[in-house]
Nucleic acid binder design. Sequence first.
DNA 1: ATGGCTTTCTACGAAAGA
Length: 260
Amino acid sequence: MKIVSWNVNSIRQRLEHLINFLDKEKPDVVCLQELKCQDDGFPRLEIEGAGYNVAFHGQKAFNGVAILSRHPINDIRKGLPGDETDEQSRYIEAVITPVDQQAFRVASIYLPNGNPLGTPKFDYKLAWMKRLKDHVQSLLPYEEPLVLAGDYNIIPEEKDAANPQEWVNDALFQPESRAAFRAILNLGLTEALRACYANDKLYTFWDYQAGAWQRNNGIRIDHLLLSPQAADKLQDVVIYKETRDWEKPSDHVPIIGIFS
DNA sequence: ATGGCTTTCTACGAAAGA
């Protein structure tokens, strides 16, 4: 079972890359973020033509999340509970039900950026993380394989940035942001990449500006968080860097969790 | 760098991203 997270930075701009990736890697499940389109603009037919079922939660111009799956998709939830006034499309969850394997519950998460500091955007980020923690806490008693896949917009530790000093005044690296991320992990989740590669300098995002990719000035902000039952099945994690070299790429690359 | 790209919108510059 291969479960992917990928912030595509516009599903319509990246459709050819996405189809190429699906054809080459044949993942079971793909969680997408930053669709940047409304539901009626989602390229459903093209993705179904590549062999995937789809569930998506779009929004005009910004945000937007989706789950693609070669297996049936059930029990879809759109939106993160805890604030009925929140209209941003940053969360979708579903149960993936293979015919001959155990089901996985999967969420595609686009956690708020939170910049600049000292504005309502940073408060919204922290409030959203508290809502995510509460929701995860409500899911854990089910004791099922659960994969929370997404762009968390969190640099967890210094080793997760090529140049951590560049990020000290950024919402992605604030002590409060990192503490909120740890609080979610401390519910009993496993961060998949660090479970497999404890200390490697590995990144999932390279800015478009200033030759960040060419200089490997990256950060690791796309994460797979696992319930104990999912962690038991984890075999490996692959950061699929080659898409960053494709023509007109997303600034994020896919991260692939491989499960038994 | 007061963001050097990239994407979006009843666009033609501004806002958002990270």
